[in-house]
Amino acid sequence: MTAPTKKPPVETQADLSAEIAKIEADSEGRNVRQPLLDYPPYRSSILRHPTKDPRHADPETIELWSPCFGHSDVDPLEADLTIAGSNEPIGERITVSGRVLDGEGRPVRNQLVEIWQSNSAGRYIHKHEQHPAPLDPNFTGVGRCLTDDEGRYRFQTIKPGPYPWGNHINAWRPAHIHFSLFGRAFTQRLITQMYFPSDPLFALDPIYQSITSQQARDALVATYDHDLSTPGYSMGYSWDIVLTGPSRTWTEPEEGDL
């Protein structure tokens, strides 16, 4: 298996930052909440974004429902990323928890949440990962859980490290956890990334900056939550997720519903 040969990048961070600033200035006041798919500072997007606007469609019945996941799908132990090895992974122990809500603020219950992340040195176990930081034999960086009746998820893990990538010279991703989410309808499917507060790399990162509204970008940043910290053990971060898109008529759960 051969990795595709890549030309080394020639652009500097200053070149990239100038491009980022120009797009941000051009889109001021437009308050677009989603990332621009056509965002040249993220070089890999250049040939991978549709050039036509999406067509508006009325959802089909199937699209107003979501696939169902349950306790046969997910072992509760999969929410603890620190127990995969025979010893504890190296890094800052953290708890990440929050609620998955729909556009009207209602909980998304019993739904699948999947995460993946680098280890504390910024290394993924992925086979094409080139970053020469150490692997941690006690950390795979993969977790799953189901939301509870309040739409709440909770993972025990370690804080991921920032890592270099090939977008431009001296490109580094801010530390993040990848999240995959299902809502109440297929229309609400979301894959995104959760960041940590006050990361100095935010201004430099074209993936984070592809969302041109600061308010929208802030929605991807977790909050340090002292009440989630466990005395003498781990630090807490809370992060809520809102999934919008048409869904079927809401029904209040009835007595006896799971």
Binding site: G103, H126, K127, H178, I191, T192, V242
Partner: peptide, 24 residues
Amino acid sequence: STPAKNSQSPTPGQTIGPFFGYAL
């Protein structure tokens, strides 16, 4: 049954990136 209030702003998406292959 419930009028949409759109009280909550949607969480933005981000790319799946290159490293989902061992996770998803």
